[in-house]
């Protein structure tokens, strides 16, 4: 079997296992959609001032924010949690003892996460359009949005691989994954909109991390705010860092 066929085959099995596993199907797939429904239903038709003099519909805001959140869970949480469990139970070591190249195995997981992320974003956008007449990005904005989506997905996959380096065992995985991501989600305007009255020190902290930049990059096409390529650069830099850490320190064997 050549590499492409092997990769395709691997993704097929990852996909099967993903949907049959209630934990991944629920927490990765249903969570962002559930939040989307809750937030838009509760706060639906209000509007919100995101920049001085620039107001948007809250529903549109949350459609964009939940699209960003979906990518983070599909990539970061899914990869970090999945690999931590597989490493702890010996699946990774077993795989290492077979002739499948490590690169194909890792790429399979990455592409599958990307696939789940894209489906989630499509569902989220369609929901927003259907029920709340959310503005979807078109033209140049759509192109910028897609670049941010792909770069962001790859970055959060890379960070998912990288965080497994500090996860000692499967029991600790949910705690470490959530503790490292949840505060950033709150800081970066994913769950609670960041308005012009937000304290500046908070924004500065948020700006160090990739979630803030990713969220703005994803949102600007929906909200009509100017797209800043600096966001893409900063997210990509984090992604590169994640890949380098994974490349150097990723372990296939359970830590004892």
């Amino acid at each position: 079997m050549n590499s492409v066929a092997m990769l395709e085959n691997q993704i097929k099995y990852i996909n099967k296992a993903f949907w049959r596993n209630p934990a991944s199907a629920f927490f990765t797939f249903s969570f962002p959609l559930m939040f989307l429904v809750i937030f838009t239903s509760l706060l639906g038709h209000h509007s919100i001032e995101i920049q001085p003099g620039h107001s948007v519909d809250i529903s549109t805001y949350y459609v964009a924010a939940m699209a960003a959140y979906a990518v983070v869970t599909a990539c970061y949480n899914n990869i970090a949690m999945g690999l931590a469990f597989q490493r702890d139970s010996g699946v990774l070591k077993r795989t290492r003892g077979t002739p499948i190249p490590s690169g194909i195995y890792i790429l399979g997981r990455l592409l599958h996460a990307l696939f789940v992320a894209v489906i989630l974003v499509i569902i989220t956008a369609a929901y927003g359009k259907l029920f709340y007449h959310a503005t979807l990005p078109t033209g140049t904005a759509l192109f910028e949005f897609l670049v941010m989506l792909i770069v962001g997905s790859l970055t959060f996959c890379a960070l998912g691989f990288a965080i497994t380096v500090v996860i000692p065992n499967a029991d600790a995985a949910p705690a470490i994954v959530n503790a490292s991501m949840l505060p950033l989600l709150f800081l970066s305007g994913i769950f609670i909109p960041i308005t012009s009255t937000a304290p500046s020190w908070l924004i500065w902290i948020a700006k160090v991390f990739p979630v803030y930049h990713f969220a703005w990059g994803m949102k600007s096409g929906f909200l009509g705010t100017p797209f800043d390529w600096m966001h893409v650069v900063i997210v990509a830099a984090w992604g590169l860092g994640g890949f380098l850490v994974s490349f150097r320190f990723f372990s296939w064997e359970p830590k004892r």
């Binding site: 099995y13 296992a17 596993n21 597989q86 010996g90 699946v91 070591k93 077993r94």
Partner: peptide
């Protein structure tokens, strides 16, 4: 066959 029996549980 390793000591631990880890395998994807949902296949």
């Amino acid at each position: 066959v390793l000591q631990s029996t880890g395998v994807e549980r949902y296949l």
